[in-house]
Design a protein around this nucleic acid. Structure first.
Lengths: 342, 342
DNA sequence: ATGAAAGCGCTAACAC
DNA sequence: GTGTTAGCGCTTTCAT
């Protein structure tokens, strides 16, 4: 039923290995036989069986993607489709397929990764999120299996290839943007401290304050589970302070959307009363009311480069680990405005 | 280097075939040897090579997902992570993995599907979007390859398993919701007419108007490329009419977010001046300002059932095609309110 | 209840 | 430049 390499070989009057070489476009095959073989392939509607190929060649031509727990709200973040788009674009260029592993909890995800690696389902892995004390990173690292992380790994930072933004600088610039607008009471609403990204951004924020000689206030800092409640708890608490902030630095556009909502409910106007700025610059940053000033972290590029880097280290086993920093850019929109004294 | 079934067999003092049977948990193997073999597996850290298994058993334990063109803005819609979460949950239950095929354009995507099918990379395919005159549907259908579509196929509607909402009814109810609030000038902002979903919803909208004896107005109907501009063009045009609508039925939450933005720019207040309702009820419907009245189409379930149905037809080749309708529910939020005469 | 052996469809030495 | 052959690691008759 299935047409195999032998059928093609027979029809073309050559040996199976020759057909195999034609598939691989081996230069040592004469053009005339190539043509002959290709005709036979077309005629028979031949398609290589990938499993057989993988088995024999010990390579799958597939990359594994590890997403955060699907129980996690983060899963719904438009960040993911966009990184995947980047990864997919690069993978496609090199003829690689994507294999996606998910799971309801940390453990399931971990098992999925082990299965991918040991089961030889993929040639390399991209971690789309990582946190402190990540068992997957540990496992992959000691296994010497090719992998790249999107974001900054907590451990082995310079032993693991990763592609990240300069979150420290980005947060600094974003905070400075507010300071330049005259704001001094600037709150920070972050995600889980468990994420390295959060820490980096918090440090950048602190640095910007220090540079401007604005005292750091512990009560202006909030860490909320990403997206849960959309940061409304933080906003409530912050606005109830004796000296409420006049500007908010928010970790993520989706969260900022929630912040915008809560503020509006409380009758606080953005940007007239307070400014709100955030990170990621996903599509909704543009669509929200008011449109959000947001740091474009170039998500597509994050994914594209991660795939690129991974593919390199699959090709060349001894490629040293690499840190790739994707440039960011503050996109100025309506949600931030000069501080107005009341 | 790699530990194979033979290593396990040797250590356990049995034949390779026995080990294979233990993996498959064949009931004809005595408990004592099972135990013995499993110990050996653990001891050696054995993991079956999936490619070898797939090759021999002619089954990959993987499902293929086909997304819309990644050049397409639709790709960024939070709809996708959520369907995938549903699919992944079911797939996981049955020990299936997910392959994702993407591509920059229709053609690349089509080729990817062919490769998945002919290359035996997957046992079945789920189409996450389909349009009229879909070549992929055609191909899969004539190949007799197991597949399911999320949404309604344009052709072969009752010969292809698919899971969908009752978009006709949902749109009807949503429109009626507005009519019940006293609205009569109700606009419809849809996506590409190329999507079957759009047509279904438009028909439902028309039906609701008819039932209420409200005349259908051509100039209240707009079809915009999903998300492009976020429907702002439509809003501009509609509000410039002599008799502008007092309510908007929008195809999608993201688009509705854009509509909200454009209205706010024009100084039109929601829901005081006009009401806006939409579909999908993704997270941002709740986070937007004002929170959106939206039809919860149960995206997770859409994916979960699609996987379920596909897995069934993989197991049982003769399973007749099935249409599965996922229930919807209007979630009432702040963006819709009674019509106020001016 | 278990073993022996023949593939699954392909690649990659090694020949010539 | 092309053919022969031996696997890749597993499943699955067919024996016993």
């Amino acid at each position: 039923m299935t047409v195999t390499i032998r059928d093609v070989a027979k029809l073309a009057g050559v040996a199976p290995s020759t057909v195999s070489r034609v598939i691989a476009n081996n230069p040592r095959i004469s053009d005339s036989t190539k043509k002959k073989v290709r005709q036979a392939m077309d005629y028979l509607g031949y398609h290589p069986n990938i499993n057989a190929r993988s088995l024999a060649a010990r390579s799958t031509q597939a990359l594994g993607l590890v997403m955060p727990s699907s129980a996690n709200k983060a899963f719904q973040n438009p960040f993911f489709p966009e990184v995947i788009r980047g990864i997919s674009t690069k993978a496609h260029e090199k003829g690689f397929a994507l294999y996606i592993s998910t799971g309801m909890n940390e453990e399931e995800i971990f098992d999925g990764v082990v299965e991918m690696v040991q089961g030889r389902r993929v040639d390399g892995i991209i971690l789309l999120s990582t946190s402190m004390d990540d068992k997957i990173v540990e496992y992959l690292y000691v296994s010497h299996f090719p992998f790249t992380v999107v974001g900054k790994p907590y451990k082995y930072e310079d032993k693991i290839s990763h592609v990240d933004n300069d979150n420290y600088r980005a947060a600094g610039e974003l905070t400075k943007h507010l300071i330049d607008l005259g704001h001094e009471r600037i709150a920070f609403i972050g995600g889980s401290l468990n994420l390295v990204m959060t820490t980096d951004r918090l440090l950048g924020y602190e640095k910007a304050l220090r540079n401007a000689e604005i005292p750091f206030r512990e009560d202006y800092i909030f860490h909320e589970e990403f997206l849960k409640e959309g940061g409304s708890g933080a906003v409530e608490a912050l606005m109830a302070l004796e000296e409420p902030p006049t500007a908010f630095v928010v970790m993520d556009d989706l969260m900022a959307l929630g912040v915008l909502g809560t503020l509006s409910e409380k009758g606080v106007s953005v940007p007239d009363d307070v400014s709100v700025v955030s990170f990621n610059n996903v599509m909704l940053a543009e669509l929200s009311t008011p449109p959000l000033t947001s740091v474009d972290i170039n998500i597509f590029q994050l994914g594209y480069k991660a795939a690129d880097c991974l593919l390199d280290s699959i090709e060349n086993e001894n490629k040293p680990p690499e840190r790739i920093i994707i440039p960011h850019k503050i996109i100025n929109r309506m949600s931030s405005a000069p501080y107005k004294k009341k």
